[in-house]
Design a protein around this nucleic acid. Structure first.
Lengths: 204, 204
DNA sequence: ATCATACTAGACCGGTCGGTCAAGTCAAGC
DNA sequence: GCTTGACTTGACCGACCGGTCTAGTATGAT
């Protein structure tokens, strides 16, 4: 163990991954540390060796999922090789298949971890709120870059790309929310493509 | 006390209103019965005289807020006297001013109670999920009727009004989610009007 | 051999959770 | 005046919460 090069002994990872699944499938408050430890086959003492608190565990989970997103399907969907508008379709598709898979496994649609936590925690923990907000900002930026490119190539008429990008992110979170409330991933497939119709003009 | 004509002695109402505020401002799990009782100046025993469980209290709160919506600003916004498209603007405005007021009072944006509870509870309580879903369906129907009218009067081109209505509801929930995560009601004002650009065609 | 350190084990802490219950207050019905 | 039943009071329940702590094990460096 030199230079903070901790080998992530598996225990930490096991805790992290278990918590990730459970927070995503239920909620922050509904999942207790004991339950996480039981499922991860880890003792309380070990847990607190790796994480100073439940809150910090949640923070780590958020970072972990954000990384997976950034280097996983977000990187794929927003592939610069793809024509800008197709990237939007790709993203909707990815969101759909991901929720479908999760839904088939658990029987219930978990929705978006960030959206879930944002609504649960924003009024309780301002630091976590800011962290989630930063993740949304990064996602929004992916949309914005895509829209900028589409405008530049003439695929779309000029518009307020930043505002429209935020609107698209909001719409995406919104359809995931509705799909979760209906417990039906198909909602994403059905409503998703309309994301391309959203437009905010450049005025005022 | 004749004929079940219970005069709602105030105690029940006080519990209900206190719980409503607290569930909205925080979350279901984060608010305990003791805390509700303390704030409502009611004893535990009285609480359980009026409500069989915390869950049923939440159900009652949902009904209560849904009623206020239906006969309050939803009825106003979807006023049949207004031209269809203006109703959408009215609704966004109403959502904005409501969140602004709540935000000014509490310092933090509470968001939409139904959206909050939907994300928190959908995977935990299927009955509550269905109840929230039914409320969303009713809201969606308001949009649908509005769109149908707009299509009929020629204000909008023919479209899949049911799907578009659902998309609009999702978008509304989405911008409230983003606004809450940013803790900034102005997001609603900024992104809201783009709800009119959403369209889902009649094909597939 | 020994010593520091990373990690594990699990009993334990005060506090809070949702919920119960026995005892009592009070006003209306007879 | 007595009974009935709605309502209140607050002590109490077992379970669980997030978190602490002490004791012990395993490993690698010296």
């Amino acid at each position: 163990m030199m230079l903070g090069m901790t080998p992530d002994t598996d225990t930490r990872t096991r805790i992290l991954m278990t918590a990730r699944e459970m927070f995503h499938g239920r909620s922050y408050s509904d999942v207790g540390i004991q339950e996480i430890c039981d499922r991860a086959k880890v003792q309380k003492g070990s847990f607190y060796h790796f994480f100073p608190s439940k809150r910090e565990l949640a923070m780590a989970v958020i970072d972990n999922v954000a990384d997976d997103w950034a280097y996983g399907f977000v990187a794929e969907a927003f592939d610069p090789e793809l024509p800008p508008v197709e990237r939007l379709d790709y993203m909707i598709d990815a969101a759909y298949y991901w929720q479908l898979a999760a839904s088939d496994m658990e029987g219930r649609m978990p929705g978006c971890l960030f959206g879930n936590l944002a609504l649960e925690m924003s009024t309780r923990d301002d630091v976590m709120r800011a962290k989630l907000n930063a993740i949304f900002d990064k996602a929004m930026d992916k949309f914005r870059v895509t829209l900028d490119e589409a405008v530049q190539t003439g695929a779309l008429a000029a518009m307020d790309t930043e505002a429209t990008a935020t609107a698209m992110l909001a719409y995406l979170e919104g359809i995931i929310l509705v799909a979760k409330t209906r417990n039906d991933p198909k909602v994403i497939l059905h409503l998703g493509p309309a994301i391309k119709t959203l437009r905010i003009e450049l005025n005022h």
